[in-house]
Computed example of a mutant assay.
Amino acid sequence: MTRSTDEEVIILTGANEGIGYYLLTALAEDHRRIAALDINGDNVRDLQDDVVARVQYYECDVTDTDDVTTVVSEIIGQWGRIDIVVNNAGVARVASFQERSLSDTRHEFEVNFFGYYRLVQAVLPHMLAQGGGIIHNMGSGTADTGHPGLSGYSATKGAIKGLVCSLQLELRGTDVSCTLMIPPSVNTQMTASLEYPEWMTIGPEEVGRKLADKIHSTQPVITPDRTTRIGLLLTRWVPSLWKRMTAGVVSNS
């Protein structure tokens, strides 16, 4: 798929805050056309004041199949195509397994796994028909290592990893790519209740901007930088290191 970046259409979920918001701002500053999806669009609307012609906010609940399919149809109706998707919406309930309810984990799966699934299902036929596209899916190192207090979130990311690996095999021979984007530990509202030491986290602005630079990457696994890539390898190869790093990050009730 060869296409001018001025003509491309990018869908970004979870665009109103955290990594998604800074990914959005970086792409907007680079004059990309972006459909920004979220259940709340306050920050996106502020951004639209400056780049209203290139950023369009769509209120969308990724847990609602009708919502997702309707929004995808509206985007195609407005811009005629979809070239890149970034499945970024995410939630996490921080609590020990004994303190969690089934509904907590069910909600995490509805957003973090089935939300991604719904959007892939809605856009994939269009990408195949137009002859190409890229579907990025926000993953996590916790898919391989687990995380105390994040059993539900880690499970959703493990499911996403399995889905992406399967899609990568199925899409061989097409010009549609499916990737995992894996950020480091990011200081966002979602992780605010985790007591990470300062050196373990990075700001969402830096991560969002680095991932924006890799928006056209079709590598199976995409990290924002070499440091993150090495850190992921270390935590997988030396499980005792990850155990020590996360031993005190969840406060006792």
Rank of each mutant, 00 (worst) to 15 (best):
A92Q: 13
A92S: 14
V94F: 06
V94R: 02
V94Q: 07
A95L: 12
A95T: 08
A95E: 10
S96M: 12
S96Q: 13
S96V: 09
F97Y: 14
F97G: 00
Q98V: 13
Q98W: 11
Q98Y: 08
E99N: 14
E99A: 13
E99F: 07
E99P: 00
S101P: 04
L102V: 13
L102G: 02
L102E: 12
S103K: 12
S103D: 15
S103C: 02
S103R: 12
D104N: 10
D104K: 01
T105D: 15
T105W: 10
T105A: 07
T105Y: 05
T105R: 00
T105P: 00
R106N: 11
R106S: 14
H107Y: 14
H107T: 13
H107R: 15
H107W: 12
H107G: 00
E108F: 02
F109P: 03
F109T: 06
F109N: 10
F109Y: 14
F109S: 08
F109H: 10
F109C: 11
V111I: 14
V111P: 01
N112G: 07
N112F: 02
N112A: 05
F113E: 05
F113G: 03
F113V: 11
F114M: 11
G115D: 05
Y116H: 13
Y117L: 14
Y117F: 15
Y117K: 01
Y117G: 00
Y117M: 11
R118A: 12
R118W: 07
R118M: 05
L119A: 04
V120K: 00
V120I: 15
V120R: 03
Q121M: 10
Q121E: 15
Q121I: 02
A122N: 06
V123Y: 04
V123A: 09
L124T: 05
P125K: 06
H126M: 09
H126G: 07
H126R: 11
H126W: 09
M127F: 05
M127T: 03
M127R: 03
L128D: 00
L128H: 02
Q130V: 09
Q130E: 12
Q130F: 01
Q130C: 05
G131M: 08
G131E: 08
G131F: 06
G131P: 06
G132M: 03
G133R: 01
G133D: 01
G133Y: 00
G133S: 04
G133L: 02
I134D: 01
I134V: 14
I135N: 03
I135E: 06
I135K: 05
H136A: 08
H136F: 05
H136R: 04
N137W: 01
N137K: 01
N137I: 05
M138F: 04
S140I: 06
S140D: 07
G141N: 09
G141Y: 01
G141I: 12
T142R: 06
A143F: 03
A143P: 06
D144G: 05
D144Q: 14
T145H: 04
T145N: 09
G146E: 08
G146C: 09
G146W: 08
H147C: 13
